[in-house]
Computed example of a mutant assay.
Amino acid sequence: MSRIAIPAVTNATGATADVYARVRKIAGGSVPNLFAALGHLAPATLNAALDAEGALASSSLSKQDLETIKLLVSEQTGCDYCVAAHAMLGKLTGLSPETLRQIRAGQATGDTRRDALIHFVLLLQTTRGTISESEVTAIRAAGYTDTQLAEISLTIAMTIFTNTFNRINDTDVDFPPVK
């Protein structure tokens, strides 16, 4: 059970009700537990997160790239909520169960571009300091633009934000379990 008690979503008023309505439009009528908690505690923060996610949705990264990054970062962070969410969302973008497993393990998938992205994100997650010029050259050589490097950075940052909050809250997972 989540550590932070959240009143029923249907009882929300004011800014919280407004942000829940926004989430329902995005999430097909539901309010996932992560968004219910954030909307209750900090509706402005949830609105900012939704704005950032909107920017990512219209970015030049593919939906599969976005879900690759989000799943990999969530796995590295140890957020069971986001691993379940992004495994499901990754599947919806067309990533196979085997590819999702390989992403979670930080392994090669056989897709050169995706594998370069996995390597780059893992490098950012597991090292400190400035990334070497050769690593930046390698991700560019895989076909990622400088604009996409900025979008990769935002994707990582937003994923770490939700991972961190879920780890604090121990948010109840309301997505299919990951095997």
Rank of each mutant, 00 (worst) to 15 (best):
R3C: 02
A5Q: 15
I6T: 14
I6V: 12
T10Y: 07
A12P: 01
D18E: 15
V19G: 12
Y20W: 08
Y20Q: 05
A21L: 03
A21Q: 10
R22Y: 05
V23F: 00
R24C: 08
I26V: 08
A27W: 13
F35C: 07
A37I: 09
A37F: 06
L38G: 04
H40C: 09
L41G: 08
A42F: 03
N47G: 11
A48R: 01
L50C: 04
D51F: 10
G54T: 09
G54K: 10
G54Y: 06
S58T: 15
S59Y: 02
L71T: 15
G78L: 08
C79A: 09
H86C: 08
G90P: 02
G90Y: 04
T93K: 02
L95D: 05
L95I: 08
R104C: 06
G106M: 09
G106A: 09
G106S: 11
Q107L: 07
D111Q: 11
T112R: 11
T112K: 13
R113A: 00
R114I: 08
A116H: 10
L117N: 10
L122I: 15
R128V: 14
T130R: 14
T130H: 14
T130V: 10
I131D: 02
S132N: 11
S132P: 05
E133F: 01
E133S: 03
V136W: 13
V136I: 15
R140K: 15
R140N: 15
R140F: 06
A142G: 01
G143D: 03
Y144E: 13
D146E: 15
L149A: 02
I160Q: 11
T162F: 01
N163G: 00
F165H: 02
I168V: 14
N169T: 14
D172H: 02
P177K: 15
P177S: 13
